[in-house]
Design a protein around this nucleic acid. Structure first.
Lengths: 242, 242
DNA sequence: GAGTGGTCTAGACCACCCG
DNA sequence: GGGTGGTCTAGACCACTCG
């Protein structure tokens, strides 16, 4: 019998969700096993059925559970989920993948936007943008050359910002924007002379090239970035759903 | 005033969702505009609040709407973000991106699994697997060399299958598996001699290399694939969420 | 037929945000 | 203070799947 608290400020459905998650993680519910019916969980937790369903719904989204109509709710086999599609910073990645992160700022300037940059940021050609070019190192080795563009008007105070320690996202959030999602296009290209030199590799070496547009909650483009990643030191994982 | 039908077999919340979606797409609700409060929509549609919320919830997931606590529900700025994290077949892509798809089967055999393949499919080393090697053409040009591995035991009737016309997924679904999601790792590599020849490019040319594991609803690995994509003819788009 | 999840109702109280 | 979404209840009927 589970005990939920009504006074700790945590929503009941969240407590239901976490209780179920614990039972899955610690093996009380085995992979492939059917969960008790919603009716039973309702009785056990002493909450209404909608509340149980809301908790279960989160775990369905995560891929920890799945349902079959008319049969039941089951624990998924392996706990692969969509965490691969999370938007994280370079420092976040460093922490979760245990490498030492360092950022060198090569350029920090205000430019007039053109072509691809203006189009991607949904601003007029000629509108000023910050351009921050950085070289990123993992465990001391260069892995990414990063060209980042941010509309000047969104956050003028970004001028005095130390991009070796703090990412532009923090500045954007201080300016009141909540970063919501990014769309990125990835391809493989050959390194040109300049890029090869910076990344300490050879001309023609394969690079994972990424164009990324970061948007706010309301869909406003906040940042457009070009990333040149050393093919032999960088890979990217995503989850696709049918 | 919207009219919902109770007899057409479409759930009310789905009708609410589609009605709202239409209003967004056709501009009745402009980007940035606040939607009527849930209470108002409840009155307009003649359904309960939970039903309205369920419809809105789907549109939130799609990124077409966003909410601010205590303020309201708003239409997101641009609806370009679509869903880039959908699992689609080569033929699906051909249709949506308007190119002519052709598949040539290079190998179709049963092998004993080893190393990476066995581990990715979560089977024992030595268990038999189908190996299907195909070359994929877009508008007559080779773009992808595809090595696919499927546990033999899952679907023995896959032996007599014409992989030029029908993808292995259909065979898997005929064997009772519902494909749910895939996890793929992407990197940039240089083409080796054999691959370069098949893809009609040069040795050392940049390739977008993908390792993909496809899993069923319950998490069972169904397929493991290695994809060598020509860097100059293939790109991949994903959406990341904070 | 019995059990399951899918949908739906008509209320309610709350925390949050604004002017 | 008045409006918004966030949470929650205690019921209900349905479609689906199985034996």
């Amino acid at each position: 019998m589970a005990v939920l608290s009504k006074d700790n400020g945590v929503a009941l459905y969240a407590q239901v969700r976490e209780t179920l998650r614990n039972r899955i993680v610690n093996g009380s519910y085995q992979p492939g096993e059917r969960l008790p019916a919603e009716e039973a969980l309702t009785a056990e937790f002493g909450v209404s059925r909608m509340t149980v369903r809301q908790g279960i719904s989160d775990l369905l989204d995560e891929g920890l559970l799945y349902r079959k109509r008319g049969i039941g709710t089951f624990v998924a086999q392996r706990h692969v989920h969509r965490d691969h599609n999370r938007l994280t910073t370079f420092f976040d990645s460093a922490e979760s993948e245990s490498f030492e992160a360092r950022i060198a700022v090569l350029k920090q300037e205000v430019l007039l936007s053109r072509h691809l940059v203006a189009r991607s940021l949904n601003i007029l050609e000629g509108e000023p943008v910050f351009h921050i070019q950085t070289l990123r190192f993992a465990d001391g080795l260069p892995i990414t050359l990063h060209d980042e563009f941010i509309p000047y008007k969104l956050c003028p105070e970004m001028l005095d910002h130390d991009f070796t320690q703090v990412l532009s996202w923090e500045a954007l959030e201080r300016c009141g924007f909540r970063i919501k999602q990014a769309v990125q296009r990835v391809e493989a290209i050959a390194a040109d002379g300049q890029t090869a030199k910076l990344l300490e590799t050879e001309i023609g070496a394969p690079l994972l090239y990424k164009e990324r547009t970061v948007v706010a909650e309301d869909g406003t483009p906040l940042e457009f970035a070009l990333c040149y990643n050393r093919g032999d030191r960088y890979s990217l994982t995503t989850t696709l759903t049918r």
